[in-house]
Amino acid sequence: MNAVASQVSSVSGLPSAEEQDRALRDASPSEVIAAALKAVGREKLALVSSFGTESATLLKVMADVDPAIPVVFLDTGWLFEETLAYRDTLIATLGLKDVRSIKPLEETLSREDPDRDLWFSDPDACCRIRKVEPLARALKPFSAWLNGRKRFQGNARADIPVVEDDGARLKFNPFANVSREEIEAIFVRAKLPRHPLAASGFLSVGCMPCTSRTAAGEDERAGRWRGRAKTECGIHTMKIS
């Protein structure tokens, strides 16, 4: 274990999120993942991935540390077919050993979105039943989780720490400090496959009804919930209990 990761103790004496954030503030993504793994163990650590346009990079770094870390994928029922195919491609390419595709509960969809138009009438409610609630259910066995947010994405992500308190568990942001150039370098160095929609102008890919192409000069997440004040689905702005 490297020197940075060794600063984080085992789960029996786990430091606070603030202490771990200070210890890992300048750590590389692989060091952050290794530290999270040392802190809580593989059975209590999950990586949450959208298998979006930049997801391959974090999954690659994780796989180099331990490809058996559980990966949680939220299959909302509104994803592009290209995203589902990309998930399968990355599982095979990176040798991921434990990818769990989580879906919203059918009874919840039948009760709250019987006509499948909630994405239009109340997108926050749609994200809650298709993303936030399924993720809360999926994360119950875990003590910590990893995600791919980056400060350069702006808005609510501009000041994210490397480690934060997420209610019932710790939340590690291994890519908090990385730049766009570093993301691209990982793609090139590892010869990672690109999301099938990236070449068509989709710089950030979420659910089909709420994702559009990004024009030149726009923020990379400008195509998400276009025309609305909404910029996040909720899984990163609410405490996951």
Rank of each mutant, 00 (worst) to 15 (best):
M1F: 04
N2T: 14
A3W: 02
A5I: 05
V8R: 02
S9A: 15
V11E: 08
S12I: 11
L14V: 07
S16N: 06
E19P: 04
Q20S: 06
R25T: 04
D26W: 05
S30L: 08
I33F: 09
A34N: 11
A35C: 10
A36G: 12
A36T: 11
L37Q: 07
K38D: 07
K38Y: 04
E43L: 03
K44S: 14
L45P: 12
L47S: 06
V48Y: 07
V48M: 06
V48A: 14
T53W: 04
T53H: 07
T53Q: 14
A56P: 09
L59V: 14
M62Y: 12
A63D: 11
A63L: 06
A63C: 11
V65I: 14
P67A: 14
A68Y: 12
A68F: 01
I69E: 02
P70E: 05
V71F: 05
L74I: 15
L74C: 10
G77N: 08
E81I: 09
Y86P: 12
D88L: 05
T89F: 04
T93S: 13
G95F: 08
L96A: 05
K97T: 10
D98Q: 11
K103I: 00
P104K: 02
E106Q: 10
E106L: 07
E107Q: 10
T108P: 01
R111P: 03
R111D: 13
D113S: 03
D115M: 02
D117S: 11
D117L: 13
L118K: 08
F120R: 15
F120V: 07
P123Y: 11
P123Q: 10
P123V: 10
A125Y: 06
C127Q: 11
R128S: 05
R130Q: 06
K131I: 07
E133K: 14
E133P: 04
P134G: 12
P134A: 08
P134V: 10
K140T: 10
P141A: 06
S143H: 05
A144P: 05
N147A: 12
N147G: 15
K150T: 12
R151M: 10
F152T: 03
G154A: 12
G154W: 03
N155C: 01
A156F: 06
D159I: 00
V162Q: 03
V163Y: 00
D165R: 00
D166M: 00
G167H: 01
G167N: 01
R169P: 00
F172G: 00
F172A: 00
F172W: 00
N173H: 01
N173S: 00
P174T: 01
F175V: 01
A176P: 02
V178K: 00
E182S: 11
E184S: 09
E184K: 15
A185E: 15
F187G: 10
R189N: 13
R194T: 14
P196Y: 11
P196R: 13
A198K: 12
A199D: 13
S200Q: 15
L203Q: 15
G206T: 03
M208Y: 03
M208V: 09
M208N: 09
P209G: 12
T211R: 03
T211L: 02
R213Q: 15
T214M: 03
A215H: 08
A216T: 06
E218Q: 13
D219C: 01
A222Y: 13
R224Q: 08
R224P: 06
R224F: 02
W225Y: 08
A229G: 15
A229P: 03
C233A: 04
C233Q: 08
H236S: 14
M238W: 02
K239V: 09
S241C: 07
